[in-house]
């Protein structure tokens, strides 16, 4: 996966709470192979229907960052929603909270999710609405988001997630280093709870 270190990009404010993965990638595109260009399906219906998703407005051309409201990416576990964002050029989403599965899918595809307090995210959105097309700078190693005025906002991130993103690590290879622990565990479980393997 593509490593993530720093990103300076145009940021789009989305004043919508509970943006779910059905909106990010409508279900009818799920049967497409990744090679079909998932970026074409990003917010496919919402960006046509509502001004709340201004991805097609001129100042936001080439945007790389979204700043949203609470519970971004809730709903379905479809990783296609993350493919659509990444293939559509978005490398970072900033919000007060995220759907759990979305956040973990994001980390596995080089998409950084930054959690900021509700008021901080709201202030950032207000600023981006006042200056449409303004850029933010996200520095993952330093754990800061720098607003258009140049002030740096710190954020927290799980240290392992950070390392995987910065180094672009593949999880399976890391897990297979624990092959012995897995085998030992499985032998013990088979003796203690044999019903775990269905009859």
């Amino acid at each position: 996966m593509q490593p993530f270190t720093t990103l300076q990009a145009v940021a789009v404010p989305l004043d919508v709470a509970n943006i779910d993965t059905d909106q990010i990638l409508p279900a009818r595109f799920l049967k497409k192979p990744r090679s079909a260009g998932y970026g074409n399906f990003l917010f496919h219906d919402e960006r046509r229907r509502s001004e709340a998703v201004p991805l097609d407005a001129a100042p936001y051309a080439g945007a790389g960052i979204l700043v949203a409201d609470r519970n971004f990416g809730c709903g379905s576990s479809r990783e296609g929603a993350v493919y659509a964002l990444v293939d559509g050029g978005i490398r970072c989403v900033i919000a007060p909270s995220f759907g759990d599965i979305f956040a973990s899918n994001a980390a596995k595809n080089g998409l950084l999710t930054v959690t900021l307090p509700e008021e901080t995210a709201a202030a950032l959105r207000a600023r981006l609405k006042a200056e449409p097309g303004a850029s933010l700078t996200v520095d993952l190693p330093a754990q800061t988001v720098t607003d258009p005025g140049g002030s740096a906002i710190p954020f927290d991130i799980d240290p392992f997630k950070k390392r995987c993103l910065v180094e672009g690590l593949d999880d399976v290879a890391l897990t297979l280093e624990h092959a012995e622990a897995i085998a030992a565990y499985e032998a013990r479980a088979a003796a203690e709870a044999p019903w775990r393997v269905p009859g």
């Binding site: 599965i101 973990s104 899918n105 595809n109 399976v172 897990t175 897995i182």
Partner: peptide, 13 residues
């Protein structure tokens, strides 16, 4: 529920 990368991880490990 898990995403596709996690599904691949569970299949393998």
């Amino acid at each position: 529920g898990i995403g596709a990368t996690e599904v691949a991880h569970v299949l393998a490990t």
